[in-house]
């Protein structure tokens, strides 16, 4: 009973590393279209999804994030030519690193959301939030690192 209640009240901390050209613009569009978005996503703007390195992702989890969303332009549409392909490869490796850390790889998501996909942005964020809510809090004790 107690457990159940705790789960319901769990407000996940999610970090979104969004590409300036596509997904950040999609977030702007979702905003100007007044769509409803989960408040748990904290957006950090990067110029390209390829800027997000292993270090940043891992320290974000160590820092206590319950989930991380990396989002950029669709394959072939990268503002910097091929950056998102690199992001995709790094993502694949990160997933396996998370397993060795005993962190559910589902806590990390990479999505392609173009500037015109405001609705998709909202769907991705809201679905991801629901998934993280089900997974519960990040088991890493952040105090161990600080």
């Amino acid at each position: 009973m107690e457990d159940q209640k705790q789960k319901e009240e769990f407000f996940p901390k999610i970090v979104g590393y969004l590409c300036n050209w596509c997904t950040y613009a999609a977030a702007d569009l979702a905003g100007s279209s007044k769509m409803e978005l989960s408040p748990s996503l904290n957006v950090i703007r990067v110029m390209c999804s390829s800027r997000v390195d292993y270090n940043l992702v891992l320290t974000t989890f160590f820092g206590g994030a319950d989930g991380i969303l990396i989002a950029g332009c669709h394959p072939g549409d990268c503002h910097y030519d091929k950056g998102n392909y690199y992001a995709r490869r790094r993502y694949a490796l990160l997933k396996s690193i998370l397993e060795t850390l005993k962190l559910d790889p589902e806590r990390l998501q990479l999505s392609w959301i173009s500037a015109s996909e405001g609705k998709r942005y909202v769907d991705v964020v809201n679905e991801f939030t629901e998934r993280i809510k089900k997974l519960g809090p990040n088991p890493i004790n952040r105090n161990a690192y600080y």
Binding site: I44, M47, S50, R51, D53, Y80
Partner: peptide, 23 residues
Amino acid sequence: CGNCVASCPSGAMRAIHFTTPQL
């Protein structure tokens, strides 16, 4: 774009104004 930063295995590449400490 910062792609080189994420690829550098030695942390030698810095994206000015999008540095690791800033993010």
